[in-house]
Nucleic acid binder design. Structure first.
Length: 604
RNA sequence: GCGCUCGUAGCUCAACGGAUAGAGCACUUGACUACGGAUCAAGAGGUUGCAGGUUCGAGUCCUGCCGAGCGCGCCA
């Protein structure tokens, strides 16, 4: 097939794939047959899918027969006839086509085409994955912990899912802009700053604390004390309110203390991000406070546009689409009766900034599903204001709640939020026990490192591997299991393959495309060929669990191959082809896990 | 009251509108001194919450019910 045909086919962009998947190659072949058989149907979807009865099947005849008022079986027969010229076993990818059932076309691939695909992907540093998202500026809003508060289980999903999407979209060529919308503003800081001021003897800065206590941990405690004092002591409450005013009006000493609290908190967040292996950096932090200077302008712009109106002394935007109780339109609270601004206004200023200043084409908000209505209102307002146009897309990437084994929201016994570090510690401890149980001659230091990677990976994988919008049950025993659809299983699969490759010694296996293929080799090769298409699915649906499912299927396809196809015990040239499959599988698993933000250790 | 989301094997979860709804765990019966036991083979397990509709074809789309969770102005 000429290079241009590899690069362009029915309707897809040129850079969808660096190495055109066989499924798309077959789609191209079937499309040409459709055009030959029925010119009026040129451009129709060839409807090529994986099949359990052949390598691929095309359902095009079934889909198109109605338009022609013919029997699907008859159209299928015509397509078989028109595919005949493509059946050049020496050159094309198709070895055989047959009609089946009411009008399916079962398509068998030429073995050399499958081997050639393995060789092509192996030769590519990016495994043949293209850049279909190239040039698309995509803002991903995720993580968003609160300053002076511990990160807890509620931050897990947004951080893990957002980070994975950032990695996938980046690989696909998108211009990813990560935004950590820190909760760094609000009246609670008045209370906290006042309390710190009145208790200068208390140490809370990272440098003044004992080893494993973080500044946010200390601040979180101090906030509770401040809250108690606020409730118990009216005088302190008054001083705290005055402090809020000082903060909002930019009084230098108060502002400096606030900035220090923010900086100390960010240090603690960074430690958690490092441990989790999350991409977020200080440069990605654009907290709520950043929008303070433009809140008034944002509000007045919406008033001028006639969108925002007065209601009972407050400034609101009434939805034209959604109603609340008693059929009244649901409002966004733009300015409270006391003149203050809330998160509705901040989010409006934020979306304005991202569309107007950052010139984003796609906005992703990775937050809890419970905020669905809020984002619907924000997007509606942004559309009415003319900020969000048809050139851009805003999506609330919603996710479900983390539940305990009894199906209730995951909390401590006392009913509080579970600290993220405690959660990770527990997972690492559990992973350590499971890995030590295998005993592959690891030193204690290696064991520690592997337990950390396995435990963190297990938590992240468990979070990513089920449908995003559904709630999921946090079950440590299941997530660190070496069997089933777990991160540990995939990491282990990777180490096993790496072990084979180390023993083989040959890091540049040659693929001989003329060799016959075992059934399991073919199944594995076809699985490997689907990597890029899976990533495109993830970018389209924003559902990382599709990548997890793909990697799990890939690992199982490898297992089946490994059962029946000796690698090291085979002579060349069979050995070379099988080593190529091993190497491509290892690289695909490693890259895939990397896109989930999970390490792929060499041993475990 | 209105709205959003979810409902699939005993359990945890999959399934771009395609043929016989798939995995893992648990269960039953067998096999192998192992390229790292991530065991392998076979079996059992389902009216995809219920009822209609669209379609050549529906777990998937539409409508209505049932059930669960969540949300609906001055907290984010």
């Amino acid at each position: 097939m000429p290079a241009t045909a590899l690069l362009r086919h029915g309707g897809s962009a040129v850079n969808d794939h660096e190495v055109l998947p066989l499924l798309d190659q077959i789609g191209h072949v079937v499309s040409e047959a459709i055009t030959r058989a029925r010119p009026e149907l040129a451009g129709s979807d060839p409807v090529v899918r994986r099949s359990d009865r052949a390598d691929f099947q095309s359902n095009a005849a079934l889909a198109l027969a109605r338009r022609l008022r013919v029997q699907p079986a008859d159209l299928a027969a015509d397509l078989v006839a028109d595919l005949a010229p493509a059946l050049d076993p020496a050159r094309g990818p198709v070895a055989a086509v047959e009609r089946s059932g009411p009008g399916f076309l079962n398509i068998t691939l030429a073995e050399h085409a499958v081997w050639a695909q393995v060789a092509a992907r192996l030769a590519s540093p990016r495994l043949g994955v293209g850049t279909p998202e190239r040039g698309r500026r995509t803002v991903i809003d995720y993580s968003a912990p609160n300053i002076a508060k511990e990160m807890h289980v509620g931050h897990l999903r947004t951080t893990v899912i957002g980070d994975s999407l950032a990695r996938v979209l980046d690989l696909l060529g998108a211009e990813v802009v990560r935004q950590n919308h820190l909760g760094d503003w609000g009246t609670q800081f008045g209370m906290l700053i006042q309390y710190l001021d009145e208790h200068p003897e208390i140490s809370w800065r990272q440098a003044d604390l004992a080893g494993d206590v973080s500044a946010v941990s200390a601040l979180d405690q101090l906030y509770r004390s401040a809250r108690a004092a606020f409730d118990a002591d009216p005088a302190f409450a008054d001083r705290s309110r005055a402090r809020v005013v000082a903060l909002q009006s930019g009084e230098p000493a108060t502002l400096a203390r606030w900035a220090e609290i923010v900086a100390e908190s960010e240090k603690a967040f960074r430690a958690v991000y490092d441990r989790l292996g999350v991409l977020l950096t200080p440069e990605d932090s654009v907290g709520e406070s950043s929008y303070n200077p433009v809140l008034a302008a944002t509000a007045s712009e919406l008033v001028d546009a006639g969108i925002a109106v007065d209601s009972a002394g407050a400034l609101v935007i009434f939805s034209e689409e959604v109603t609340g109780p008693e059929g009244a339109p649901v409002p966004l609270m733009l300015r409270k009766r006391d003149g203050g601004y809330g998160y509705d206004t901040t989010d409006l200023a934020t979306i304005r900034h991202r569309l107007r200043d950052l010139k984003a084409h796609r906005l992703l908000y990775v937050t809890d599903a419970r905020q669905a209505l809020h984002f619907r209102l924000v997007f509606e307002a942004a559309r009415r204001a003319g900020w969000l146009t048809d050139d851009a897309e805003a999506t609330h990437v919603a996710y479900g709640t983390v539940l305990d084994r009894d199906g209730r929201p995951f909390r401590t016994r006392a009913g509080g939020a579970v600290r993220l570090t405690d959660l990770l510690d527990a997972a690492v401890a559990r992973a350590r026990a499971v890995v030590a149980d295998r005993d592959h001659g690891l030193s204690p230091a290696e064991l520690d490192q592997i337990a950390e990677r396995a435990g963190i990976g297990a938590v992240k994988y468990a979070d990513l591997s089920t449908s995003r919008v559904r709630d999921y049950v946090f079950d440590l025993d299941r997530m660190v299991s070496f069997t089933g659809n777990t991160g540990v299983y995939l990491q282990y699969a990777h180490t096993r393959i790496r072990s084979i490759l180390r023993r083989a010694g040959d890091s540049h296996p040659e693929v001989d495309p003329e060799l016959p293929m075992e059934r399991e080799e073919r199944a594995l090769a076809l699985a490997l060929d689907g990597f890029g298409a899976t990533l495109i699915e993830v970018s389209r649906t924003l559902e990382p669990h599709r990548l997890c499912g793909y990697l799990y299927d890939l690992a199982r396809a490898f297992t089946a191959f490994y059962e029946v196809c000796p690698v090291l015990g085979s002579a060349e040239p069979v050995r070379g082809n099988r080593l190529a499959l091993c190497q491509l599988t290892a690289r695909t698993l490693s890259r895939g896990l990397g896109l989930l933000g999970i390490a792929a250790p060499e041993r475990m």
